[in-house]
Design a protein around this nucleic acid. Sequence first.
DNA 1: AAATTGTGCAACCGCACTCAG
DNA 2: GCTGAGTGCGGTTGCACAATT
Length: 242
Amino acid sequence: MRRPCCDKQGNNKGAWSKQEDQKLIDYIRAHGEGCWRSLPKAAGLHRCGKSCRLRWINYLRPDIKRGNFAQDEEDLIIKLHALLGNRWSLIAGRLPGRTDNEVKNYWNSHIKKKLINMGIDPNNHKLNQVLQRPQLGHNSPNINATTSPSLEASLNHSTKPKKPKVENGGVSDSGSCLDDDDDDDDDESNSDSSYLNLDLTIGVPSTSFNSSENKQVVEIDQQVITSGQLGSEPLPTLLLFR
DNA sequence: AAATTGTGCAACCGCACTCAG
DNA sequence: GCTGAGTGCGGTTGCACAATT
């Protein structure tokens, strides 16, 4: 068993002081990110490296966008969550200036409740109950936010996180309908999925293309958009995407 | 005004992955 | 191939503040 990284006696815990923040900022400005293990000592901080990394990534980084989430950001989170489940770092990667922690908190404190209030299960993005709402037009297909088989396959290859917790009962991906589609009724789900309009082009940031992972997600976006599933006519989006 | 309850967010914890030796 | 250090990620906790009673 590996020893915890933060077992050191005398390390500070809890909220960061302004002085600590400044030390961390100064150090990273001078030396750059990385080597979190040795950073605290070098920077003169009585914190564990993990804590420093978290503080920097979630709060001190200069490109962090603070404040309320815009409506399009919220929509994008919902869509990405439908695709990826609780893979907050992936979702945050599509939202420039937002951190995984921030997205996760926003999901848990705002979006989740909103979905529940709308009768939508936030775990699988499916309707829990029949809602009284205006005609959707077309044949009112099931608005389940499931994904197409090709998209699912792509995701499994390109954006699947390192941790396969899902398979052994982990909860991290409980929210992904990708997993739900693995159930015995996946044939039906797949056919439903063809109606889904998951236009992920909202706010696609050019700055987020710096990792191959993001590139792959963008490619997936293109598939969704150009796959011909949508035809020439716009298909209904998820109720709350409107 | 004080006490209680609810909410949001920052930070912590532990697990899993990567990679060098 | 094995091991352990370093790192990243997601779930959970704890605290501060707001709202309500």
